[in-house]
């Protein structure tokens, strides 16, 4: 049989029919490679285009073109509340236009943001977990830490207020009542600034909620956790900014506020450049300076007033934490 095939091939036989299939095959490969190359080339354009578009759109406003820094990419690890509240969507374009830096904001919990800083995966942090921040600075993971702004945490829950905390002045007493009534309480449990504050409050009242049937952990960001709380009719602790920005879809009311322990303070931290050779120290410095500059502070103070009837954040550059606490 094999002999037959051999002789058949040698004789030429019908092979031209097979060869006819070849040209389209080669064209197919060529076309695929071409499309592939185009697709990959196209892929790079969205990364490059924002600087061009942002400059063209803002040229009408300010006739200056942004400067071109040597190392233009900055990774900012920022707490979810600054993203979910929309504040960064306002500030970052201004910063990019002014300085030419291209900021990549990664919105994560403050705990994760500091881990990123520690590993040198981020250049600059915007976080709100003061106790962890102090440790972060003591371990010299950061080179500077500046107070940017504050707002406050609030205890939210269903309007029916099953734990009757509405008229309780102290946040600690309110949390005690929630625990005593065994009403569902949602924890972010993502080591975020909000989560750290919540655990601090539980510790202060001497209750360990872990594993209790009324204590559930979402493991998600503030916006998502508020959605869950709203659906389940549960209590939770949130920063005021995220609550106000997402309130329209929630059936949750503010039931506890005003206790000094609920103060929510945001700092900007420049990551130590010894963490990685890739740290953009100049960019981090520029961003930190921008956040505490007079103009930015004014923008922060005004943010949300038109939309929510009140400011979401209060600018604090130059103040000390002690001054805020005494307020």
């Amino acid at each position: 049989m094999s002999k037959q095939i051999l002789s058949y091939r040698q004789a030429g036989g019908n092979t031209p029919k097979l060869h006819r299939h070849f040209p389209p095959h080669i064209w197919g490969i060529a076309a695929t490679v071409l499309v592939l190359a185009l697709a990959i080339a196209g892929c790079s354009s969205p990364a490059a285009s924002p600087t061009t578009t942002s400059s063209t759109t803002t040229i009408a406003v300010a006739t200056t073109t942004p400067p071109k820094p040597a190392n233009p990419d900055i990774i900012l690890a920022s707490t979810t509340s600054t993203g979910d509240s929309g504040l960064m969507d306002v500030l970052l374009p201004i910063f990019q236009q002014k300085t030419g830096y291209n900021v990549k904001p990664i919105y994560v919990g403050s705990g994760q943001a500091m881990t990123m800083g520690e590993k040198g995966e981020a250049d600059v942090l915007l976080v709100h977990a003061p106790d962890s921040e102090v440790k972060f600075m003591e371990a010299s993971h950061g080179v500077s830490r500046k107070l940017v702004m504050h707002n406050d945490f609030v205890i939210v829950g269903p309007a029916s207020d099953p734990a009757r905390i509405k008229d309780v002045k102290s946040a600690l007493d309110a949390m005690k009542k929630i625990a005593a009534a065994s009403v569902l309480f949602l924890s972010r449990s993502d080591n975020s600034g909000t989560n750290q504050l919540e655990l601090k409050v539980w510790k202060a009242v001497g209750i360990d909620p872990k594993g209790k049937s009324w204590y559930q952990e979402t493991g998600q960001g503030m916006g998502a956790t508020l959605n869950v709380a709203s659906e389940k009719g549960a209590y939770t602790i949130t920063d005021r900014a995220t609550y106000l920005a997402t309130k329209k879809n929630l059936s949750l009311d503010i039931l506890g506020q005003g206790d000094p322990i609920l103060l929510n303070i945001y700092h900007v931290i420049e990551v130590n450049s010894n963490k990685s050779t890739k740290i953009n120290a100049a960019g981090a410095r520029a961003f930190a300076d921008f956040m505490v500059s007079a103009e930015t502070q004014q923008t922060i103070g005004k943010y949300g007033v038109d939309k929510y009837g009140q400011a979401l954040f209060f600018p604090d550059a130059g103040k000390t934490e002690a001054e805020l606490g005494s307020k």
């Binding site: 095939i5 058949y8 091939r9 036989g13 019908n14 092979t15 097979l18 299939h21 070849f22 095959h25």
Partner: peptide
């Protein structure tokens, strides 16, 4: 296909 005398590549293509 092999019996028709196709090379290995021709067979794969078919």
């Amino acid at each position: 296909i092999m019996a028709l005398g196709a090379s290995r590549w021709q067979m794969v293509w078919l």
